[in-house]
Simulated scan of single mutants.
Amino acid sequence: MQHEIIQIPKILYMFAIYGMQVYSVYKSIYTAVLNRDSLTLAMDISDNSISFMLSIYNIKFASKLREDVLNLSTKHCYGCEVEHPSQTQHTCLMWTESEHLEMHFEEALVNVNRKAVINMWQDEMKKMEWSGWANRNTVDISERARETFIELLEDVDWCKKNLPKPDRLYNDVQNFSQLFQRFFAYN
């Protein structure tokens, strides 16, 4: 009995070998085209990469908000303003971080330097890329992927759908502050 040799087209072979990866890329391109009014952005990074970069961006944003709230607490402190010798007259020292957050969150949110957040995010992404972490975890955080993500951050509709609302940001900053205090309480 002779066996017939069948040649499988290369694309079918690739799909069989890399099935889910090819499907994931195709799905992300299709989703990106459906979600955008203009077809100028051809997004060819996976949903996993976008989700990962978005989570790191949200962490950096919450970190920056926390930093800005603490700076505002010093800026609006009467004791600091008049250089009062008693610590009890310094709200920057006497209030808890939660009290500062409650008092200054809205002002910090309105005035947050988004460019600084993007720079902090870029630095973190570069560190992860250089460490090889992304290669081990199949997440694309290359320069091209980062540029695509920054373009998404400039899309107002995408930001409305994907970035946290102020109440969620408030909770994130509050949780971030608590974790920060716990971490440094032992050092």
Rank of each mutant, 00 (worst) to 15 (best):
Q87P: 05
S55F: 06
A134V: 08
P164K: 09
S63F: 07
L93D: 14
A145C: 04
N135K: 14
N171A: 14
K115W: 11
A108T: 03
V82D: 03
I150S: 00
E129M: 08
K126H: 07
C77V: 01
N137M: 08
I118A: 13
F105P: 01
Q122I: 03
L152N: 06
D140R: 00
E81Q: 12
S142L: 01
K160C: 13
W158M: 01
M128N: 02
R136P: 01
E143Q: 01
P85C: 07
T74I: 15
V156I: 13
V139M: 06
L153C: 09
F61G: 00
W130A: 11
T88M: 11
R168H: 12
W95H: 14
S55Q: 10
N171Q: 15
S142E: 02
V156S: 08
S131I: 00
H100Q: 01
V112P: 02
K126G: 03
D172K: 09
L153V: 08
L93Q: 15
T88G: 14
S55K: 10
R136N: 12
I56R: 13
S86R: 09
N119E: 14
D172V: 01
L152G: 05
V173K: 03
R136S: 10
M125K: 00
K165N: 14
R146F: 00
G132V: 00
A62V: 04
A116T: 07
K126P: 00
E83D: 10
I141Y: 02
V139I: 14
T91Y: 12
E147P: 05
I118C: 13
L72K: 01
K161G: 07
E106I: 10
I118L: 14
V69N: 02
Y78N: 12
M128W: 06
V156G: 00
L72R: 02
Y57K: 03
S86T: 07
W121M: 13
P85D: 09
H100A: 00
K64Y: 07
Q87L: 10
K165D: 14
N162I: 04
H84W: 12
L153R: 08
E154P: 00
K127C: 05
E99G: 13
Q87V: 11
T148W: 04
A108C: 03
V139P: 04
K60R: 15
C159P: 07
R168Y: 13
C77D: 06
W130Y: 13
M128I: 09
Y170S: 06
I150M: 03
H90D: 09
N137A: 06
H90I: 07
R66T: 06
V173S: 03
E143F: 05
K115Y: 13
T88D: 15
A116S: 08
T138V: 14
N71K: 15
V110S: 12
P166Q: 08
R66M: 11
K60S: 15
N135C: 08
C159Y: 04
E147W: 09
D140K: 01
F105R: 02
